[in-house]
């Protein structure tokens, strides 16, 4: 095999002929899609086109909808995410997720970040403290909260809460981070901070982000995928998608002609 180089991105998640159903409704139709390691991949498309369904399929968050099922193949480092012997809990440890609305736990700031480690059985206070500090720093929140780690997470602003949720996800050292419209409930300044943060994180993590905001997709991502009615219309380098899309439907969407 060729030595890895930035010019040849390494596939992290590969999805082939992937379909998803909620009961009888088909939400995704035969999607073929690769997410590359240490790249930011953005997903855009009109409401209801299946972006969240796709994202949540990648860490098996949709398992909790009883009538949800998938067809086709989705692999993480070559291993089937929906393989019969796969423990979804382990997938979720490797593929973390941040949601649209900040959802901190009813716990202190410290305990929010420590939660993922605690459930893995980490008890040592010093280990926990180290990782909590590291994660809060990585989420660019440390300076704002270092003096009140034992305060309630609910006392933080919405933007801070969202960075706390990112810190919480980072603390379990995932390989992939899925972000489902992470900034849509935030003000422009908080949004800018989250976007900066993503640039910092991209050196170490594979990131996939759903966004309704096309400027945001253009600003932060390396690759962009356009979904429409449950199908993947086009995926390509972000600059290509926004300057010279191949599919006329993509062009219509990014120029605001529908959506």
């Amino acid at each position: 095999m060729e030595p890895e180089s930035p010019a040849f991105p390494v596939p992290k998640i590969e999805v082939k002929n992937f379909s998803a159903f909620y009961g009888k409704t088909q939400a995704l139709h035969n999607v073929d899609f690769t997410i590359y390691e240490r790249k930011i991949t953005a997903m855009i498309g009109p409401s209801g086109c299946g972006k969240s369904t796709f994202l949540r399929s990648l860490n098996r968050m949709n398992d909790f909808f009883l009538d949800f099922r998938v067809e086709g193949s989705a692999t993480l480092d070559g291993e089937e995410i929906y393989g019969p012997a796969v423990n979804p809990v382990l997938i979720r440890q490797r593929v973390g997720m941040v949601f649209q609305k900040p959802n901190p736990f009813q716990k202190s700031i410290f305990e929010n970040v420590a939660y993922g480690l605690r459930i893995q059985g980490v008890k040592s206070r010093s280990v926990l403290s180290d990782i909590v500090e590291k994660s809060l720093k990585a989420a660019a929140l440390w300076d704002e909260v270092k003096d009140r780690l034992n305060g309630s997470a609910f006392s933080l602003s919405g933007g801070q809460q969202q960075r706390l949720c990112i810190a919480r996800a980072l603390a379990v050292e995932p390989e992939v981070i899925l972000l489902d419209e992470p900034a849509s409930a935030l003000d422009p300044i908080s949004t800018a901070r989250i976007e900066e943060l993503m640039q910092d994180l991209k050196d170490r993590y594979t990131i996939a982000i759903v966004t309704h905001n096309m400027q945001q997709a253009a600003r932060v991502s390396d690759r962009t995928a356009f979904f429409l009615d449950g199908t993947l219309v086009e995926v390509n380098d972000t600059t290509k998608i926004f300057t010279n899309p191949e599919d006329p439907r993509t062009e219509d969407y990014i120029t605001g002609r529908f959506g």
Binding site: N59, M61, Q93, F99, Y115, G116, R168
Partner: peptide, 14 residues
């Protein structure tokens, strides 16, 4: 809230 539960599940909680 469902979001609360999902937050924990997404961290790999059983």
């Amino acid at each position: 809230p469902r979001s609360y539960i999902e937050g924990a599940l997404a961290l790999g909680a059983s």
